[in-house]
Simulated scan of single mutants.
Amino acid sequence: MSRADDPAADDPATDDPATAWRRLAALTPARIALGRAGSGLPTREVLRFGLAHAQARDAVHLPLEADEVRAGIAALGFETLPAASAAPDRTTYLRRPDLGRRLDEASTAALAAAAGDPVDLALVVADGLSARAVHEGAVPLLAALKGALAGSGWRLAPVVVATQARVALGDAVGALLEARAVAVLIGERPGLSSPDSLGIYLTFDPRPGRTDAERNCLSNVRAAGLKPDLAAFKLHWLIDQALTRRLTGVALKDESDRLLAGAGGSKPIVGASRPYPPPAAGDGSGARWNPEEI
Rank of each mutant, 00 (worst) to 15 (best):
M1Q: 02
D5R: 13
P7R: 12
P12C: 09
T19N: 14
R22M: 12
R22W: 11
R23S: 01
A26T: 03
L27R: 13
P29D: 03
R31C: 13
A33M: 11
R36F: 08
R36G: 06
A37K: 12
S39I: 06
L41G: 03
L41T: 03
L41V: 07
A52F: 14
R57C: 05
R57A: 08
D58P: 07
D58K: 06
D67W: 05
D67Y: 03
I73T: 08
S85T: 09
D89Y: 05
T92Q: 09
P97W: 07
R102V: 11
R102I: 10
L103W: 09
D104N: 11
G116C: 00
L121E: 00
V125S: 07
A126H: 07
G128D: 11
G128Q: 09
A131M: 07
R132P: 05
R132A: 12
A133N: 01
E136T: 07
E136Y: 07
E136V: 06
A143V: 13
A144T: 12
A144C: 15
L145Q: 02
L145S: 00
A148L: 14
W154T: 08
R155C: 12
R155A: 14
L156V: 13
V159F: 02
V159D: 01
V160G: 03
T163W: 06
A168R: 01
A168V: 02
L169N: 04
L169A: 04
G170T: 00
A179R: 12
A181R: 07
L185M: 02
E188L: 07
P190I: 02
L192R: 06
S193F: 09
L202E: 03
T203R: 00
R207D: 07
R210V: 04
A213T: 13
E214S: 13
E214F: 15
E214R: 14
C217A: 04
V221S: 11
R222K: 15
L226S: 06
A231L: 01
A232R: 04
F233G: 00
H236N: 08
I239W: 06
G249V: 03
G249I: 06
A251G: 08
K253R: 15
S256A: 13
K267E: 09
P268S: 05
S273F: 09
R274A: 14
P277Q: 03
P278D: 14
A281W: 14
D283Y: 00
S285L: 10
G286V: 01
R288F: 02
